[in-house]
Amino acid sequence: MTIEFELNGKAVTYSGDPDTPLLWALRDDFGLKGTKYGCGVAQCGACTVHVDGMNRRACVAPVSSMEGRSVTSIEGLTGAVAEAVQGAWVALNVPQCGYCQSGQIMSAIGLLGLIEDPSDADIDAAMAGNICRCVTYGRIRSAILQAAQKVKA
C-alpha cells in the first residue's frame, strides 16, 4: 500500500507502514526535522503542521489519512503571513530552547489564516493546545499581534 499526498508543494509517495503517525513519516522518511515530538497524544502541539491549510497534530494523524491531501510543515512555509510571523518571532526574541516553536509558529499561522486580526481571547483559544515549558507565552502573544499588524499594513 502506498500513500500519495502533497508535501510542501511537491507530490510524494509513502510506502512504509500506513499506521505510522505523520510526525515520524515527516521526520524520518522525508527528512523534515522541524516538526517535533513532544507527547505523542495531541497534548502539546509541538508536532503541528498544516493539512489542507488547517492546523493538525501530526503525532495522532496516521500517514494513511493524508492520502490526496496537502501537507505543509515548517520547512514549506511561504507567503506574507508566514514571513510576518517568523519575522516577529525573531524580532521579539520569542524562542528560548526553541523546541516547541515550530508548532507554535504553525498554530499561529493557522490562526492568522482564519482570523486576520485576532483578539487576546482568539489567541488564548487558538494557542491553548501548544505547550511551551520555557513559558514564552507572553512573547508568543506579542509576536502574533505584531505579525497581524504587519500583514494588515
Binding site: G34, Y37, N93, V94, Q101
Partner: peptide, 29 residues
C-alpha cells in the same frame, strides 16, 4: 544591549538541530 538571540533565527524556522534531529547513515531507532 538587547542584541537579538544568536539562535533566534534557526529556532524560528525549524532549522535548529536537537539530539532528536541528528541523522547518521545506517542509523536505527
Amino acid at each position: 544591549t538587547d542584541l537579538p538571540r544568536i539562535d533566534g533565527d534557526e529556532k524560528s524556522t525549524g532549522k535548529a538541530v536537537y539530539s532528536i534531529d541528528v541523522e547518521r547513515e545506517n542509523m536505527v531507532q
